[in-house]
Design a binder for these strands. Structure first.
Length: 436
RNA sequence: GGGCUCGUAGUGAAGUUGGCCUAUCACGCCUCCCUGUCACGGAGGAGAUCGCCGGUUCGAAUCCGGUCGGGCCCGCCA
């Protein structure tokens, strides 16, 4: 019977067998400490028998071990318990030293990220790297719970598409049995269609962007958290997002204290309602504060995004900000303009700790209007397979609805405090990395 | 796509106004010592044709040209 390392503290006085990877060897002469890693964590084994220690000669970290011994309580042991009188059995010997260190923090300086990713299959065994993805898994779990609490249905939409979807971002083209197909850059049209079915839906899945962006916040493949719901206003959407971000943070700091400590992560300051500031006002404040004029610009500069978050943290007790009142000239065809001020789109971005993690908007739900906007704003062909079925759903009756897309890795990056979004991806894909 | 910047043992760095470099340090690895370590400690050792090609020079890690591969910022976006 296998005992997990996390269970040994509750098995004092019992003989147990743990299985895992050799994580650390400390030879002290007459006694040797061995640390074994399994899925639940680490356990210390004390070996005094020279013959037992000899079994590990020249065996590298990563060697697969089975260890049988007596669990003894000792304040000097990590976790208050360790295994004594151990009989070691090497299940899978490893004689090659790992290319990167597993038992000490790996370098995350920007200049060395290439090495970090090149050796990911091994480097991810490092507990501190693992922690990133334990946190990511918990974020997914918290989001799923939050959406379910709010009566959303989870869906999975196709990523192989007949044609480009939203326009704007570049899409990957590929051969599909002699026809041209594209990879989805978002589930936008499908999740809107599903509003007509379930009213409230969400999806968490990979999307693909063929943009030649070489920055700390872009990847060509990332996990998009998408939600869409009907019979709502932009205000409802902002409330949903405010609640969501807080739910994730609360859950994370409750469930993953150890993992967060690895990264010295600080719980974000998030009010019940994240403050909303119009783009024009941000431009004005930024211009006043820095002397660099951005007034009239149609988007926020990256530096403005960083600046407004600092401002909000100091003055509004929030590390996140909604940016409202985007110029309608920058609207996508499926967006809805504001009823009272049609020069603005009914759109928000959510900026968290200096980076845009969410874009959301109300969608144009009137068939005639969205059809016209498609022709006028996107030059789209209503009969093209990329638009035809979307329009079919719109014509079949759509309530006022809206939704958002959020970059999972960006959220994890900012919760932890990583410098590059790629550090929050198991196997990141960017403009010049396709492997591992 | 534009601008800037970097490439030195398995890993991270120093050296880069040419010679003192037979290339330095730390981690890791190997050998030995060490009975309470937990980033253990101590002694010794192996490991690098300084990304690659060409040039300048008596002499190149260092200067020049080319080339390959990274990174950061901007644009665009999540």
């Amino acid at each position: 019977m296998r005992t997990l390392t996390k269970e040994i503290a509750s098995k004092i006085g019992q003989t147990v067998t743990v299985q895992g990877w050799l994580h650390k060897k400390r030879l002290m002469g007459g006694l040797t400490f061995i640390v074994v890693r399994d899925r639940s964590g680490l356990a210390q084994v004390l070996v005094k028998d020279k013959d037992e220690v000899e079994k590990l000669r020249e065996h590298q970290i990563g060697t697969v071990l089975s260890v049988e011994g007596l669990v003894v309580a000792d304040d000097r042991a990590p976790g208050g318990a360790e295994i004594h009188d151990a009989k070691l059995s090497v299940e899978v010997p490893v004689m090659e030293q790992p290319p990167v260190e597993i038992d000490k923090p790996l370098d995350h300086d920007s200049g060395t990220l290439d090495t970090l990713f090149e050796y990911r299959p091994v480097g991810l065994r490092n507990p501190r790297e693992q922690a990133v993805f334990k946190i990511q898994a918990e974020v997914i779990e918290a989001l799923r719970q939050y959406f379910r609490r709010n009566d959303f249905t989870e869906v999975h939409t196709p990523k192989l598409l007949a044609a480009a979807t939203e326009g704007g971002a570049e899409v990957f083209k590929m051969d599909y049995f002699g026809k041209e197909a594209t990879l989805a850059q978002s589930p936008q049209f499908y999740k809107q269609m599903m509003v007509g079915v379930f009213e409230r839906v969400y999806e968490m899945g990979s999307v693909y962007r063929a943009e030649p962006s070489a920055t700390t916040r872009h990847m060509t493949e990332y996990v998009s958290v998408d939600a869409e719901f009907g019979f709502v206003t932009l205000s409802d959407l902002m409330d949903l997002l405010s609640g969501m971000l807080r739910a994730v943070a609360d859950d994370l700091w409750e469930k993953c204290p150890k993992e967060l400590t690895h990264w010295k992560a600080e719980k974000p300051l998030l009010p019940a309602k994240i403050p909303a500031i119009s783009m024009a006002e941000i431009h004005q404040k930024y211009t006043d504060a820095t002397g660099t004029s951005t007034i009239g610009e149609k988007d926020l500069r990256p530096d403005e995004e960083r600046w407004i978050c600092e401002y909000a943290k100091e003055n509004l007790d929030s590390e996140a900000v909604f940016v409202t009142d985007w110029p309608a000239a920058e609207m996508k065809f499926y967006h809805k303009a504001q009823d009272e001020h049609p020069e603005f789109a009914d759109r928000i971005d959510l900026i968290f700790r200096g980076i845009e993690i969410v874009t959301g908007s109300m969608r144009e739900n009137r068939y005639d209007v969205v059809l016209q906007q498609l022709k006028d704003m996107a030059g789209g062909d209503p009969e093209a397979p990329g638009f035809k079925y979307f329009l079919m759903a719109m014509q079949a009756g759509m309530p006022p609805h809206g939704g958002f897309g959020m970059g999972l890795e960006r959220l994890v990056q900012k919760m932890i405090g990583l410098k590059n979004v790629k550090e929050a991806s198991l196997f990141p894909r960017d403009i010049n990395r396709l492997a591992p």
